[in-house]
């Protein structure tokens, strides 16, 4: 039932998109479905790379303390 609904929506979406992208005649919908999966795969790979990169440059607890103390003590001096 759900699959049928999804397929119906898929058909509609494909019908609309086929005007824009003009996909090749042979099994075009499979291409789009797997293309989406490919995009998802890429997205996740990129996200993981970003996380790894951030982990390398993540501030330590001491850095955070330093940042806070710098903020809290910077303006006080010229204001008091």
């Amino acid at each position: 039932m759900i699959a049928a609904v999804l397929r119906l929506v898929g058909n509609k979406a494909y019908f609309l998109l086929s005007f824009i992208f003009k996909p090749p005649r042979k099994e075009p919908r499979i291409m789009i479905a797997y293309g989406c999966l490919g995009i998802l795969f890429l997205f996740i790979i990129i996200k993981i790379a970003v996380y790894f990169n951030r982990q390398k440059h993540a501030p330590t607890h001491e850095d955070l303390d330093e940042t806070l103390l710098a903020i809290a003590n910077r303006r006080r001096d010229d204001a008091s």
Binding site: R7, G10, Y14, E27, R29, I30, G35, L40
Partner: peptide
């Protein structure tokens, strides 16, 4: 994105 992939699928 997964939903889009499912929507564009042709067969079960």
């Amino acid at each position: 994105v997964m939903l889009a992939a499912v929507l564009f699928s042709q067969t079960f």
